[in-house]
Design a binder for these strands. Structure first.
Length: 356
DNA sequence: CATCCGTGGGC
DNA sequence: TGCCCAAGGAT
């Protein structure tokens, strides 16, 4: 695409601002250097999918310490990687992360493809991540469009078509302002701008380097862009979960690879729904907690009723699982819902002990 | 194009 | 407090 006139002015002003104000982030090459490890760029981009910079920080540090290279990650145990990802959410990313690392080692001699097309063929790498890695790690011109870029571009050009229908127009406009040189810096500069100045609410237009070129700034309400389709209501679901204890251990199961919390360790639980059928996984003297654990997922909210029991030596619940030492439950890699269920059981036990 | 898939922080 | 939102991808 040609870059000229107003379009090139935007890139120039943004890059000049970025040269002074770029955020220092753990996965970014230090200022003034061109070093960029494709493994670290890819790892950070996958972690940052639908996830905030603040949440990713400690996970990125732990992953790069445990697995400094793609070869080492490819050789890791599945359960270790899933446990290290616990709490970060969208667990299909962790499964795809491992598949991708192994594909890079097996099919690409341990080196990430350096083109969008090549990257796009890897598990967990979609249009955004392929463009971001191609631009940031390999200096390729690529049109990088994430939610920040969507917002910035929709405002720059006052695109009032509601999302997601506006995606094609936004992408075309992003293409027009993407420079041939420094495409990686440009992409990161757009994302920095969206994260710190051109924010969803109360954008700081007064300090924005692009306000002279921004069609939304010229309107009464720049924050009205982008326009979004109304969202649908979240249904409520109910479920039952079981804390089964035996000799200092608790019974944990592994959830199926596909679906919600796929591949993660968990407490055994019933189906979740409007009025789910439920039968405890073992015949025992059950004590029910007074309050369920409430948790909100992307497309529904859940109230998980909890029940706990002790088993005698030698007794086993139905189905497949493992006895996990309770004093090391923090190492089980439970997703947040079940980590909170564990906390609720602990509080319930403490309350009863205090009464005795 | 719509749906499914987590979680924590900000206001 | 409830709602919005985030460096999206797979199906």
């Amino acid at each position: 695409m040609r870059v000229e006139g107003r379009e090139s002015k935007i890139a120039g002003a943004l890059l000049a601002h970025y040269d002074v104000h770029a955020r220092r982030l753990p996965w970014r090459a230090p200022p003034g250097t061109n070093a960029s490890d494709p493994y670290r760029v890819w790892l950070s981009e996958v972690m940052l999918q639908q996830t905030t910079v603040a949440a990713v920080g400690p996970y990125f540090a732990r992953f790069t310490t445990s697995w400094p290279t793609v070869e080492e990650l490819a050789a890791a145990q599945d359960a270790d990687v899933m446990a290290a990802w616990a709490g970060l959410g969208y667990y299909a990313r962790a499964r795809n992360l491992l598949s991708c690392a192994r594909a890079v080692v097996r099919d690409h001699d341990g080196r990430f493809p350096d083109t969008e097309e090549g990257l796009r063929g890897l598990p967990g790498v979609g249009a955004y991540t392929a463009a971001a890695v191609a631009a940031i790690a390999f200096g390729r011109r690529a049109v990088v469009v994430d939610a920040n870029v969507e917002r910035v571009v929709a405002r720059l050009f006052a695109i009032d078509t509601p999302l997601p229908a506006a995606r094609s127009a936004i992408r075309a406009a992003a293409d027009r302002i993407t420079p041939d040189a420094r495409a990686g810096d440009f992409a990161q500069a757009m994302m920095d701008l969206g994260a710190t100045i051109c924010t969803p609410r109360n954008p700081a237009c007064g300090i924005c380097p692009l306000r002279q070129d921004c069609a939304a700034f010229a309107t009464a309400d720049p924050a009205a862009f982008p326009v979004k389709a109304p969202k649908k209501v979240k249904p409520h679901r109910l479920g039952h979960g079981w804390w089964i204890e035996r000799d200092g251990h608790v019974w944990l199961v592994r959830r199926p690879d596909k679906g919600l919390l796929g591949g993660m360790r968990a407490l055994p639980s019933s189906d979740w729904g409007a009025a789910p059928e439920w039968t405890p996984p073992v015949d025992a003297a059950w004590t029910s907690l007074a309050e369920p654990v409430s948790h909100v997922f992307t497309h529904f909210s859940l109230a998980l009723a909890l029940h706990r029991a002790h088993l005698d030596a030698g007794m086993e619940p139905n189905g497949t699982g493992e006895w996990w030492p309770i004093d090391r439950i923090g190492e089980a890699g439970l997703p947040t819902l079940f980590a909170r269920a564990v906390e609720a059981v602990r509080r319930d036990k403490d309350a009863r002990d205090a009464k005795d």
